[in-house]
């Protein structure tokens, strides 16, 4: 059997356009502060259209809600940021791909470049780091890991909240596997991007590209990339 992608794409685009039109009629008026809804994106719908159950967040589906405390004791609810683009980056201070050392995402300056790029693309976007490392990993308590995480991000000249998920419930709900592992939530609360922060050579910043696309109401492409890094050491 041969695929007819063109016919399928046309059908999906038409269906999506109808659904979007219906959704816009019901949408509350917010004075135009929310990011524009993404245009019809057959590719994105292809991500959500299959029948297999994903373990974790899925492109085009609602981001799992969470309430977490940051290392400085503040409470963060994802739902507080409805209307904003939210970047969730799984983080670990002892991982050489994430926060440990000059070649890590945070130590190399790559994260700082990303945060600046995100702010330039959308000043209302929210960047949150989440640490799902279990208590006692590498003989470090959650408090010590939290303080070490804060030190890494402060050293990078940033003030990104670090949310503590020591029981791993939020990380598992999203299907976060590595540090770093990035999930971007669009203004409607749906997952718009899952994967690595940048390409392997660092030349393509997937986070900034996704935020720029969402802000412009365009489809995020790529919507998924291969995440790489240290495995998250979840609590049992």
């Amino acid at each position: 059997m041969r695929m007819n992608y063109k016919a399928i794409s046309t059908a999906i685009v038409a269906s999506t356009a109808i659904l979007l039109a219906a959704a816009q009629q019901d949408a509350p008026k917010d004075g135009g502060n929310s990011p524009a809804p993404p245009a019809a994106d057959p590719q994105k719908d292809a991500h959500k259209g299959h029948n297999h159950k994903h373990a974790g967040a899925t492109i085009g589906h609602a981001a799992p809600e969470f309430t977490l405390k940051s290392v400085d004791g503040k409470t963060y609810n994802l739902s507080d940021y409805k209307g904003n683009i939210v970047i969730l980056e799984w983080f670990c201070s002892t991982c050489p791909a994430s926060g440990n050392g000059d070649n890590s995402y945070w130590g190399s300056g790559s994260a700082t470049t990303t945060v600046a790029g995100v702010k330039a693309a959308d000043p209302t976007a929210i960047y949150l780091a989440i640490n799902s490392t279990k208590d006692g990993h590498q003989q470090q308590t959650t408090a010590v890991e939290g303080a070490a995480s804060a030190a890494v991000i402060t050293k990078a000249g940033q003030a990104i909240p670090i949310l503590v998920d020591a029981d791993g419930k939020v990380g598992r709900a999203y299907g976060a596997k590595t540090t770093p592992h990035v999930f971007i939530v669009d203004g409607t609360g749906n997952i718009a991007y899952i994967g690595a922060p940048t390409s392997d050579d660092g030349k393509t910043n997937y986070i900034v590209n996704a935020v720029t696309a969402l802000k412009a109401g365009k489809p995020v492409a790529p919507a998924t990339t291969k995440n790489k890094g240290c495995g998250i050491k979840y609590a049992k």
Binding site: K44, A46, H47, P219, A221, P222, A223, T224, T225
Partner: peptide
Amino acid sequence: IPFAVHLADAV
């Protein structure tokens, strides 16, 4: 081996 194709993600 079930799979999905996401052409927009391809390079």
